[in-house]
Structure formats: C-alpha cells, structure tokens
Computed example of a mutant assay.
Amino acid sequence: MARLMVDGDELVMGLAWWEKLITRHGDVRVPLAAVEQVSIQPDWWRALRGIRVRTHALAVPGALCLGVWRHGDGQDFLALRRPRRSPTVVVDLRTAAPYARVAVSCPPGSQMVSAINTALDRQRRAEAGEDS
C-alpha cells in the first residue's frame, strides 16, 4: 500500500511493488518547495478529479484508484483505497511540479500531515535564513 514520507527536501509517495507495476511508475518524488497545501479528506473519493490515463492507472469502482488522472489543470497521481477508517492525505502542488496533486489513503493521516507541515516549516525557515 502506498505511503507518504518526507525524505530530506522531497516529499515521496512510496509505492508497493505491485503499484509500481500497474502504474508503470516508480516512487513519486516532489520537492517540498512545490507543496502548496496539505489537507485531510475524510472521504477518499473527494480527492478524485478528471479521468484516468488508461495506460498508467487502475480504477476498481468503489474500491481503488491508482495512478495518473488527467484533468483541466494538469495531472494528479493518486493511490486511493476505500478503507473503512483511513482518511486521505491530499497534497496540492504548485504549477512547477510534475503533478497538480498527489493523494494517498493512509491510516495515520493526521500524523502524516503534521510531519509534512513540520518539514515545510523547517525548509521555509532555512530559506528565510539564507535570504537574510
């Protein structure tokens, strides 16, 4: 099952081997500087936008959305499951990023949002210190 983590100055969506096989994509890496907003959606389907890219995504109605979804603002990379008690972490990205949004269903959603926000604050403080 996919998971989000902070690795240095990057946000990484780590994919399981079978997810990499289905999406034909390795782990998704995005610079922390490209993160615009991080939020939690209690309903996994609210993170969906657009239509899936057939060659790089899998959709099982009501159960799973995995891979690249294309829409008017660009593309999203999603790893969403219909869990019973797992929220969805939604990370909206700036236009310079390879995706407009990455979203993943994960049980410790609030802990992940806190970890990402802490890393973002640390990076922004470091950038502000360099500029001064």
Rank of each mutant, 00 (worst) to 15 (best):
S39F: 04
G50C: 01
L58C: 14
A119G: 06
D121L: 15
Q37L: 01
H25K: 12
C106F: 09
R84K: 02
I40F: 05
F77R: 14
R82T: 09
D131H: 15
R122V: 00
V6M: 10
T88F: 04
N117G: 01
R81Q: 07
A119R: 03
D7P: 00
G72C: 07
V89I: 08
C65M: 14
G50R: 13
T23M: 14
G14V: 04
V91Y: 13
G8M: 04
A97Q: 05
R94Y: 08
V35H: 10
V6L: 12
M13Q: 02
G67S: 14
G109F: 01
E10F: 09
A34Q: 06
A47F: 05
L15V: 00
G109S: 14
L21A: 13
V30Q: 05
T55A: 12
Y99V: 00
N117R: 15
R94C: 09
Q123R: 10
R101K: 05
P87D: 15
M5G: 15
I51S: 12
L64C: 11
T55N: 13
E10T: 05
S105C: 04
T95F: 14
D73C: 07
V38K: 06
L64S: 01
W44Q: 02
E130W: 14
V30L: 07
R81P: 00
G74H: 09
V102E: 01
V38G: 01
S132A: 10
R85F: 15
A126L: 13
V91I: 11
L78F: 12
V53L: 07
V60S: 08
G8K: 11
H71A: 00
V60P: 10
S39D: 04
P108A: 03
L93I: 04
R24D: 00
M5T: 11
G74L: 02
D73F: 10
S39G: 11
V102T: 09
W17T: 02
E19Y: 11
W45D: 03
